[in-house]
């Protein structure tokens, strides 16, 4: 069964149809990229998947269960992790505490009034950070972290509730080129290992074409192409959309 099934998604903002009739599916262990020029509706699409926006029409199903219109926190509880285009972490906490928060929330222990956080879920949090190569940063405040490290923290947070689906909005934006590749390779590895379906948007076509199993191309709210990287690259529609930018061919 597909992890995520999207059918006929629609969203308008005051007469502007940002997303129209988008349908697709993501399968366990698959890396699916959602690309398209600026304003194509990628973020809108994304925000409807985890409940940040309510679609005007269409359905979103997670493992066969309809999750359309649920709040982000409910969607998360069903096993959807999310990273943001502009990182969102808790700046007044350490890296470790950030991950602990996600774990505590996952274990429904946030109502605790007595035992200090320091003693709760620290070990699994450290393990997660270790997996992402962030162990040595565990005690640093998130507020002073480099951007690339923040992206990793977000990924650790997103993985904390053993998600079935990972939504990553521009996961490598603002990172140095080598870092990007390393992060995406790690993501792909974890995804395949744990059977997590990953849907990500990305500007960097290197990242897209080297890590995506499949690619969706969005333009002006419509899905104009879908398929394996090679097929998408050859698609005339896609070429037209990206015409002149040369981005599709990238630096191969």
């Amino acid at each position: 069964m597909a992890t995520l099934e999207v059918a006929g998604l629609e969203k308008s903002f005051g007469g502007v149809r940002a997303v129209q009739g988008v349908s697709f599916a993501v399968h366990p262990g698959e890396m699916l990229a959602l690309i398209g020029p600026n304003g194509a509706g990628k973020s809108t699409c994304f925000n409807m998947l985890n409940g940040q926006l309510r679609p005007d029409a269409g359905t979103v199903r997670l493992l066969g269960r309809e999750i359309t219109g649920l709040a982000p926190r409910q969607v998360w509880r069903l096993g959807v992790g999310r990273t943001f285009q502009i990182t969102a972490t808790f700046g007044s906490m350490t890296v470790l505490e950030n991950v602990q928060m996600a774990l505590l929330s996952h274990h429904r222990r946030l109502g605790g009034l007595w035992r200090p956080v320091a003693r709760l879920d620290a070990a699994p949090a450290r393990a997660l950070l270790g997996r992402l190569g962030m162990a040595d940063q565990a005690e640093r405040p998130c507020g002073i972290l480099a951007y690339g490290d923040l992206k990793r923290v977000e990924l650790a947070i997103a993985l904390a509730n053993e998600p079935k689906l990972l939504l990553m909005d521009e996961p490598t934006a603002g990172m140095a080129p080598q870092e990007r590749v390393a992060l995406m390779a790690l993501t792909a590895e974890i995804a395949r290992e744990s059977g997590i379906a990953v849907l990500f948007t990305e500007h960097d076509m290197d990242v897209v074409f080297s890590h995506a199993d499949r690619i969706l191309v969005l333009d002006r709210g419509r899905l104009i192409a879908e398929g394996a990287p090679a097929a998408v690259r050859a698609d005339p529609n896609v070429r037209e959309v990206y015409l002149g930018s040369g981005a599709v061919t990238g630096a191969h």
């Binding site: 972490t89 906490m93 928060m101 929330s105 200090p116 956080v117």
Partner: peptide, 27 residues
């Protein structure tokens, strides 16, 4: 003590970033 406990952390979490808090299941 509450501030050091998960509830206090959750308070700070929603203060620091409501977006992130909601995204990890915090109401």
């Amino acid at each position: 003590r509450v501030i050091h406990a998960p509830f206090g952390y959750a308070l700070r979490a929603q203060r620091d970033s409501t977006l992130r808090a909601e995204a990890i299941g915090i109401d």
